[in-house]
Nucleic acid binder design. Structure first.
Lengths: 339, 339
DNA sequence: TTGTAAGCGTTATCAC
DNA sequence: GTGATAACGCTTACAA
């Protein structure tokens, strides 16, 4: 049987309400009683039951976290776990907890999110933008990481993905590349469609015609039928000299695939990619990659959430998290050479 | 204002307790009333407040998850996130939620765990074995993933790490290697010390003397001062021909380091490692690696936890999760060659 | 089969 | 300052 506030009260010889007040340092309490209460509480190893507390003041210190797709596979993506870390750090600093929306394959993130919200366990929801994200939920604040799609939530945190897509493409063009493939386009993830826009803008600005067949939509790994398309594309005579790749893992897979057909990065094909994962640093060639600061995305999102909950933030808010380019060895400057 | 059980009761024209019973399909209720209740509940979008429920029956449907070190960095390890996925899948199937023990650097996993337990939010704790894991907590079941160290918890789930360490070493010896280095020893993680024991057993059984200077204790990345030691070791004339490496990321880092000093894997140094991460598959050479089934570890741990909670399991239980070797290209058979 | 009442552990309101 | 009392939303004897 756990020790309750009543036990403490009895031990001290006061009423439960007095104990409660003493513990919250709230109202006016005699120094003496306060001290005795604290002491006894410690001796008895008393810890207030958060459930009961939450019940009375209709809010919990738990924030629900929803990842796209089935929460299962989603966590495998390094980007996601970095975000989660950020969320956790920020939450813990303000004494909040994280409740993960779990899910087997059958459960969409919308369902999982709604589920959490309805349970009453959480007093806020942070979600990673995705096609299957829930629309605005009743009675519970939510902040989105990424750009909301069909979602009217006024609070979100994101990189400027259009811009980073443009910069990636420009970076390649400045080094003489004009035949540039876009790898990793996926309707379901706004990040990729945003970056694609940047890519398109950059190319158009440079007067380079888009080649729809060079937009390839591989998932975040390379086990898809798109592989065959890639092989064909790179086997062709006027194949791309560079690719903008949505994820380092994808890029690593790509170098493998290129190797199979006798091409090397960066000598034959330059690669610029995203997420700056550890393995990419050690990979050969070391990947030139944008760090989009997932940890910071998480931190910012959680702080925004808690500000909304506490009432510190009321107006619609968008927080932009900066990205940085890690220049390494996967991009070759071919501006001297013949095109 | 959220809709409560009273609202439903009023709408149907019965008492709250009747609604409660109808919803839990518990006691004997007239079919008619039950149907009306269900219908109205749906119309009103009623969802029972879990907090209130938990308060009454003194248990929640939340399991606390504690990772070693500060939960922040810990999640970055692919092994850990795979475990978390497994935990999540199993939990969701039985309608449980996961509460993450968050933590900044200041918080040990013991503190974080105790914290969760005391909050009353969770009715069980799953933890990854680690030096700083909390000892047995009062009044709340816990299951450990990994071998408990200074911990009397009767429930745990693990691979046979001694065995896998032995098999890794044997695998190398069967291919002619006799000078084998052990990379990634870390007192804090029982996995590594267990595997080291296996390594020791294998070597001893083969009559090979242990070389203490060939036990190197790199963290799960290669940014440590141990690098210098490694460089020295491999620069020496009778350097190792193979290494047992505790993690694929480490192995990837190692190949980089070897490259710096003009050595290649597997021609000069064979590598067998653990965790079978995606990047390792695409790495060059593709890593021969043990898949220790982290997902399954998570699933098993969660199922055990829920069985304990439900009373289905009472006796001390140890579940061993099998591992499998993924043979790829990072080990060379040198048994023909001169030693 | 259904309603009434008590209680889960805490906090807030109101007296004293 | 401190102590009753009610209330948070729900479940569960016990009555009816």
């Amino acid at each position: 049987m756990k020790v309750t506030i009543k036990d403490v009260a009895k031990a001290v010889g006061v009423s439960p309400s007095t104990v409660s007040r003493a513990l919250r340092n709230n109202s006016r309490i005699s120094q003496e009683v306060r001290d005795r209460v604290h002491q006894v509480a410690q001796e008895l190893d008393f810890h207030p039951n958060q459930m009961a507390r939450s019940l009375v003041d209709r809010k919990t210190s738990i924030i629900g976290i929803v990842f796209p797709g089935d929460a299962g596979q989603s966590l495998g993506v390094p980007f996601h776990s970095a975000v989660l870390q950020g969320l956790g750090c920020a939450a813990s600093e303000r004494h909040y907890h994280l409740l993960l929306a779990t899910g087997s394959e059958a459960v969409t993130s919308a369902d999982a999110g709604r589920n959490l919200a309805e349970s009453g366990y959480v007093s806020g929801l942070v979600l990673l933008a995705a096609e299957d994200a829930p629309a605005r939920l009743p009675h519970i604040p939510m902040v989105i990481i990424g750009r909301p799609l069909h979602n009217e939530t006024p609070y979100f945190v994101d990189n400027d993905n259009v811009k980073v897509g443009r910069e990636a493409t420009d970076y390649l063009m400045q080094r003489g590349h004009r035949r540039i493939l876009f790898l990793g386009y996926d309707q379901k993830f706004v990040v990729t469609t945003d970056r694609y826009q940047g890519y398109e803008q950059a190319l158009t600005a440079a007067g380079i015609a888009l080649r729809p067949d060079w937009i390839v939509s591989s998932q975040f790994n390379l086990n898809s039928p798109d592989n065959d398309r890639l092989r064909q594309i790179f086997a062709a005579p006027d194949c791309p000299t560079a690719v903008v790749c949505m994820d380092d893992n994808l890029a690593i897979g790509l170098t493998g695939l290129l190797g199979e057909i006798g091409l090397n990065a960066p000598q034959d094909v330059s690669i610029i990619s995203f997420n700056n994962i550890e393995a990419g640093r050690h990979h050969s060639p070391a990947l030139t990659s944008f760090d989009v600061n997932p940890h910071q995305l998480g931190v910012a999102a959680m702080n925004l959430m808690l500000d909304v909950i506490s009432g510190a933030t009321e107006d619609p808010t968008f927080i932009e998290v900066p990205f940085t380019l890690k220049e390494r060895d996967s991009v070759l400057d071919i501006s001297g050479k013949d095109e």
